[in-house]
Computed example of a mutant assay.
Amino acid sequence: MNLARGVALVAFDGRSGALRGGERLDLALAGAELVSLARAERIAVQRGRVIILDETPVGSTQLDVALATLRPFSEPHLLSPWLHRRALGLRGRYLGDLHEAGEVEPRGRRRFGLFGDRRSQLTATSSRRDLLLQLDSDAPADPTFAALVHLAAITRKDLRRRLAATVGNLDAEGGDRITGAAKAERVALFATRDAARRVREPQSSSDYPLDPDVQRAWDLGRSVDNGL
């Protein structure tokens, strides 16, 4: 699974038809690609450098591009510089990826009866709703994914506080006894965290409103969970 596509889906804003978020989102997407490649056992991380274990394509367009950029010219890529290079313009590429996957599509209508509306609308509403409901939990099913969403700074303030606790728990666990793909995943996540911390967060990034349909689904799901 390409975790970056999940992050992009959470970041999609139905009002603007784009991915909300700035440089932090770009970095989180790049970090999510590294985590996904580590889980697919395509890469390892040794002494701050990314080592390719297997060049076989994963089958996801953007992940395969990321894997190709990691092929060393003379020596393995340093993790942090690669994150910043890969992050440039990445949110635009993932918006295109969502279009190709059919998860968003053009609105196909005219505004004010005169001008074509070039914005996009979400078609994968249930997929996004499921992701949001998974994130809105004291124990997210995938803590690493939750941490990446938090680093992207694309959710509401109340959810961001909850996700911050998830990042703190991962930090507290440390990584001394983790090996293999899990070790590479954790190193990639923390490198993304360190890069994101150096980026000034947009003032309103932590308080984005949700699409009305998704908000209703979220509220309904929480009511059912609480037995209301």
Rank of each mutant, 00 (worst) to 15 (best):
L19M: 09
L19A: 12
L19W: 02
R20Q: 12
R20D: 12
E23S: 12
R24D: 07
L25H: 05
D26K: 01
D26S: 07
L27Y: 11
L27S: 09
L27F: 06
A28T: 00
A30V: 02
G31H: 09
G31I: 02
A32L: 07
E33N: 11
E33F: 07
L34P: 05
L34A: 11
L34R: 13
V35P: 03
V35W: 05
V35E: 04
S36N: 03
S36D: 05
L37K: 05
L37M: 09
L37Y: 04
L37D: 00
A38N: 01
A38S: 13
E41A: 14
R42P: 01
I43R: 06
I43D: 03
A44C: 00
A44Y: 07
V45G: 09
V45I: 15
V45Y: 00
R47E: 15
G48D: 11
G48T: 10
R49E: 15
R49C: 10
R49K: 12
V50S: 08
I51F: 08
I51P: 01
I52R: 13
I52F: 04
I52Y: 06
D54T: 11
D54R: 06
D54A: 10
P57S: 06
P57N: 08
V58Y: 12
V58E: 05
G59C: 09
G59Y: 11
S60W: 13
T61I: 14
T61C: 00
Q62E: 15
D64Y: 08
D64Q: 06
A66C: 12
L67N: 03
L67D: 05
A68D: 14
A68C: 07
A68Y: 12
T69V: 02
T69A: 06
R71E: 15
R71W: 06
R71H: 07
P72I: 15
F73C: 01
S74L: 13
S74F: 08
H77R: 14
H77F: 04
L78G: 10
L79G: 00
P81G: 09
W82D: 04
W82C: 03
W82R: 05
H84Q: 14
R85P: 00
R86S: 06
A87R: 02
A87Q: 04
A87N: 05
A87M: 03
L88S: 11
L88F: 12
L88Q: 13
L88R: 15
L88V: 14
G89N: 05
G89L: 07
L90I: 10
R91K: 14
G92A: 07
G92L: 08
L95P: 10
G96L: 09
D97C: 09
L98Y: 02
H99I: 11
H99S: 13
E100V: 12
A101S: 13
A101N: 03
G102L: 04
G102D: 08
G102K: 00
E103Y: 05
V104W: 07
E105R: 15
P106Q: 05
P106E: 04
G108S: 08
G108P: 06
G108E: 00
R110T: 10
R110M: 11
R111E: 10
R111N: 10
F112V: 09
F112R: 14
G113E: 08
L114E: 02
F115V: 14
G116H: 11
D117W: 01
R118G: 15
R118T: 10
R119A: 07
R119Y: 02
S120D: 10
S120N: 15
Q121S: 13
L122Q: 03
L122S: 04
T123E: 13
A124Y: 08
A124P: 04
A124V: 02
